[in-house]
Amino acid sequence: MTTPTLLFFAMLLDGIFGEPRWLWSRLPHPAVLMGRAVDTLEHRLNAGENRLFKGCVTLVVLILGAALLGWALSLLGAVVEILIAAILLAQHSLVDHVRAVASGLRMSLPEGRRAVAMIVSRDTAQMDAPAIARSAIESGAENLGDGVIAPAFWFLIGGLPGLLIYKIVNTADSMIGYRTPRHEQFGKAAARMDDLLNWIPARLTALLIAIPGNAMNQWREIAADARLHRSPNAGWPEAAMARAIDVALAGPRAYDGVMQPFAWVNGLGARDIGPPAIDAAITRLWQAWALTLATTAILSLLS
């Protein structure tokens, strides 16, 4: 099978069935194993002098290990490649988590806060309903990029090795790519590599959201809003989602008890939002997934 064909079936498998909970209740998920690898190297190397260099060495070891593992697994045949790719894509589980916030919010404000706390790192204890809805929508848009579109993109580019390299870099960034005294130097290489690997997929994700959302005529505004984000990439899907469902996203929010004055994205959009806005965002997530699936089908036929 060609790589686009493998990706087509992997996306279809993930989109229909999602995560097999019965399996991961018995075995460690590949993402957990990746996290353990990062954690082991971090504890052994992140000490003393030259932490920037040690972080670079850690990143190289992780990338080479992921590439070698991906190459070895690809030798086992198409079925194995499809299964592993499907496991490392996250469309179904992403939608499940975002939908859970809408369901919780329909039950009560505390249930909405509980559900959104599962998917965001910001303070949730004092959130009102619009803040909960914004958080869920922002998380859904951003994670569509790094949980679905970016893995699919790198699988198309580099097969299973490309997918595993992306996932290990993304895992490393999520664990050590922070500007803290312990990780600022050691995790810098992982953070910059994650930015690089997500540069094209983030903008593709924005396109995939904007096209079915009839927001392409606002692309200049999307680009302007995206540049307001702290991340060079995460702002693109968020800005596209804001325009595609006509809501205001981002804005001030609290981390560790400190209110951060973040700029509004699509500030003229609706701010008093709730579960219906989350439902609209979920529709856009599925539309972006379907557009990606159709693209892989076309590439499969062409190849």
Rank of each mutant, 00 (worst) to 15 (best):
W22A: 09
T283H: 08
W289Q: 09
T283R: 14
G77H: 10
A100C: 08
R230Y: 10
I119W: 00
R21D: 12
A31C: 07
A210Q: 06
A206R: 04
S103I: 15
L75W: 08
P151T: 08
D39W: 08
A239R: 11
T296K: 02
R230V: 14
A131R: 14
Q185E: 15
P252V: 11
C56L: 13
A294S: 12
L75A: 15
L285H: 11
Q91D: 08
V120Y: 04
T124W: 04
N266K: 13
L301S: 10
Q287F: 00
L68S: 14
R36T: 10
P151E: 01
L197A: 13
G187P: 10
A290I: 02
I132P: 08
A240F: 03
M216V: 15
M1L: 06
A270D: 10
E19T: 13
P252S: 12
L64E: 06
V120P: 02
R106G: 01
F9Q: 01
M127Y: 08
A67I: 15
M259S: 13
T283W: 14
N46V: 10
N198I: 01
L75M: 14
A190T: 09
S74I: 00
D123W: 07
L68G: 13
W22T: 08
L196I: 14
R36L: 15
V169C: 14
T205G: 09
P161R: 11
L23K: 09
V61R: 00
G235Y: 03
